[in-house]
Lab assay of single mutants.
Amino acid sequence: GPGLTDLFKTEKAAVKKMAKAIMADPSKADDVYQKWADKGYTLTQLSDFLKSKTRGKYDRVYNGYMTYR
């Protein structure tokens, strides 16, 4: 089956995709945050998933999740 690194890459891609969806349409934020909360994502995990070469690119999404939880 898929190894943990593959799983991480898949999760990371999914999280980034959802983060971009929030940035494009902030009204989606609560739905996405709820999904992440259901998956039990911690802020540390989210921070790892949303690492970007562009500093602060996903800060709004991260901060939103922090206040959501």
Rank of each mutant, 00 (worst) to 15 (best):
L50G: 01
G3Y: 04
G64D: 07
K35T: 10
Y41F: 06
S52W: 06
F49D: 01
L7P: 14
K12V: 07
M18W: 07
W36I: 01
L4D: 13
D6K: 09
G40R: 04
K35D: 12
Q34N: 06
A24D: 12
G64S: 03
D48K: 14
G40Q: 06
A21I: 13
K35M: 15
A21W: 08
A24L: 11
I22L: 09
S47F: 10
L4E: 13
K57S: 05
D48P: 02
Y65G: 01
K28T: 10
G56F: 06
V15M: 03
L50A: 01
T42A: 03
K28A: 09
G1P: 10
K51S: 13
A14V: 10
F8P: 07
K20N: 13
A13N: 06
R55N: 12
S52D: 11
Y68T: 04
T5F: 04
R55L: 14
Y41E: 00
S47V: 09
K35S: 12
V15N: 02
A19H: 00
W36R: 00
D25S: 04
T42E: 04
T44R: 13
K16M: 09
K12I: 06
D25R: 03
D30G: 10
P26F: 07
G40L: 03
L4M: 13
T44E: 13
W36G: 00
M66S: 08
K28R: 10
Q34W: 05
A19E: 00
D59P: 02
S52G: 10
A24K: 11
T67W: 14
K57I: 07
D48I: 15
D25P: 00
K20E: 10
G3C: 15
Y68L: 02
T5R: 12
W36V: 00
T44V: 12
L46S: 01
M23Y: 04
Y41Q: 01
K16W: 04
A19W: 02
L43S: 07
R60H: 15
K35W: 08
N63W: 14
K51N: 10
V61A: 04
Y33T: 00
W36C: 01
K17E: 09
R69N: 07
L7S: 15
A14S: 08
Y65S: 00
Y65H: 00
K12N: 04
G64K: 02
K51R: 11
Y68N: 03
S47L: 07
L4A: 13
V32T: 07
S52A: 05
S47C: 12
K12G: 06
P26R: 04
A21H: 06
G3E: 15
N63E: 13
D31Q: 11
Y68G: 02
K39Y: 10
Y41V: 06
M66P: 02
V32R: 01
K35Q: 13
G3K: 12
D59I: 07
T42N: 05
W36M: 02
K17H: 08
Y65L: 00
K9N: 11
Y65F: 06
K16Y: 04
G64Y: 02
K17T: 08
L46G: 00
Y68W: 15
T5S: 10
N63V: 12
D31W: 11
T67E: 15
T44P: 10
A19P: 01
L4T: 13
T67L: 14
A14W: 14
F8S: 10
T67R: 15
G56H: 09
R69G: 04
M18Y: 06
P2W: 02
D6A: 06
K53E: 11
A29H: 04
Y62K: 12
E11I: 06
S47D: 07
T54A: 08
A14D: 07
V15T: 03
K39M: 14
A24R: 14
T10L: 09
M18K: 03
W36T: 00
D48L: 13
D38S: 11
G3R: 11
M23C: 05
Y65A: 00
Y68P: 01
D48T: 13
L43R: 04
G64R: 02
L7D: 15
G64T: 01
P2Q: 13
K39T: 07
D38E: 14
K17L: 10
K57C: 04
K57M: 08
E11M: 05
K57F: 10
A21M: 13
Y33Q: 01
G1F: 08
D48M: 15
F8R: 12
A13K: 15
R55Q: 12
K20A: 10
K9R: 10
G56W: 05
A14T: 09
V32E: 02
V61M: 03
Y58H: 02
G1T: 14
F49W: 12
Q45H: 07
R69E: 05
G3M: 11
K39A: 13
T10W: 11
K28Y: 07
T5E: 14
A13P: 02
A19M: 03
A14H: 10
A19G: 02
Y62C: 08
G3S: 13
Y58D: 01
R60F: 15
Y33F: 09
A29G: 06
A14M: 14
K51D: 08
G64A: 04
S47W: 12
D31E: 13
V15C: 05
K35I: 15
K57V: 07
D38T: 09
K9P: 10
Y33C: 01
G3W: 04
E11F: 04
R69T: 13
V61E: 01
R55P: 15
L50V: 02
D6G: 06
A19L: 02
Y65D: 02
T44G: 11
V32K: 02
W36E: 00
D30V: 11
D30C: 15
K12P: 03
D25Q: 05
E11L: 05
F49M: 08
K39G: 03
M23A: 03
L4S: 12
Y62H: 03
T54C: 11
K35L: 15
R55E: 14
S52E: 07
K17P: 01
D31P: 05
A13T: 08
S47R: 14
D31V: 11
L46F: 02
T67A: 14
M18G: 06
A21Q: 11
G1M: 12
I22A: 07
M66L: 13
D59E: 11
T44K: 10
G56C: 10
V32Y: 06
L7T: 14
S52F: 05
Q34H: 12
K39S: 11
K17G: 07
Y62E: 07
R60M: 14
L4F: 12
Y58L: 03
A24G: 07
L4W: 10
G40N: 07
M66C: 12
D25T: 04
P2E: 12
L7W: 15
Q45S: 04
P2K: 11
F49C: 04
Y68Q: 02
R55H: 11
D48H: 13
A37G: 04
R69P: 03
K28E: 05
Y65K: 00
K51T: 11
M23H: 03
F49L: 09
M23S: 03
R55T: 14
I22T: 03
K20M: 09
I22V: 13
G56V: 05
D6R: 06
K35R: 09
T67C: 15
V61T: 01
Y41W: 05
Y33L: 01
Y41M: 09
K9W: 11
A37I: 12
L43F: 06
K16S: 04
L7G: 12
K12R: 12
K20R: 12
L4H: 12
Q45V: 07
S27M: 07
K35H: 10
T10I: 14
D38Y: 06
A21T: 08
K57Y: 09
T5Y: 05
